[in-house]
């Protein structure tokens, strides 16, 4: 599903923030991306959600080298990837419902069916009474839940999340993790960048550890998080 082959990345021809990274993620697997601040977690995710191209190496996703994909190919590939950004990146002029519906509308969907689906998901993440609120009026945790709902609404093949539980209370954090695990069971490949070592240990999925732009090790297997949840 995702394979990095000797990938390096730099911003504006500066020094490499990711250095000769190679790994392979199987379809339907779940992984945590760990490492200290500045290790390159967000940069690695940017490469995976096709916001940047690597300066060297190949990135194989969906059976093709996406680092060489043309601009016209990118939208189709991006629609198969769900992203939860660290800073949420919600559109302030749209309500929570509209934000979550955005991927569906971009894909050409319209009508009441979209709203039904979106409202159901927002209810599931505990935002039944905040559906028409604009992001500027939402708390950090609420924004995060809207961002997660937006990322999963289209049942992506790959879900990438950058610190998805950073702004929510432990109970909601577990609830959201349960959502990720359930999505993973449905076949979605999931990569979560996090500092939350407790969460990593609790779920016990495989771990990609980055330090100074180098991938140090991949370890771990999935615990039975579902039963605990």
């Amino acid at each position: 599903m995702v394979e990095f082959r000797n990938v390096s990345m730099s911003y504006d021809k500066g020094s490499d923030v990711l250095k000769d990274i190679s790994f392979k993620l199987e379809p339907g697997s779940m992984h945590f991306l760990t490492g200290p601040s500045g290790a390159g977690k967000t940069s690695l995710l940017k490469l995976m959600y096709l916001a940047h191209r690597p300066s060297r190496g190949e990135i194989i996703m969906f059976g093709q080298d996406v680092s060489k994909a043309s601009r016209t190919e990118l939208p189709k590939l991006r629609r198969r990837i769900g992203v939860v950004f660290q800073d949420f990146r919600l559109l302030d002029h749209m309500s929570a419902v509209e934000n979550v519906a955005l991927p569906l509308r971009i894909a050409g969907g319209s009508g009441p069916q979209i709203n039904e689906h979106v409202e159901e998901l927002l209810r599931w993440v505990g935002l039944d009474d905040r559906m028409n609120a604009n992001p500027s009026t939402l708390s950090g945790g609420e924004k995060q839940r809207v961002a997660i709902a937006r990322a999963v609404i289209r049942r992506p093949d790959i879900l990438l999340a950058d610190e998805p539980t950073g702004n929510v209370d432990p109970e909601m954090g577990e609830r959201l993790m349960y959502l990720f695990v359930e999505l993973n069971k449905l076949g979605t490949t999931i990569v979560i960048a996090t500092h939350d070592t407790g969460l990593v240990e609790k779920i016990g999925a495989s771990k990609l550890h980055l330090e100074g732009g180098n991938l140090l090790h991949i370890e771990g297997t999935m615990n039975d998080f579902e039963e605990e949840s």
Binding site: Y49, L74, K76, R78, R79, L91, L102, P103, I106, A107
Partner: peptide, 11 residues
């Protein structure tokens, strides 16, 4: 907004 639209697959 444009970046988000792009990243979510807008042409």
């Amino acid at each position: 907004i444009i970046e988000i639209m792009h990243l979510m697959g807008a042409h």
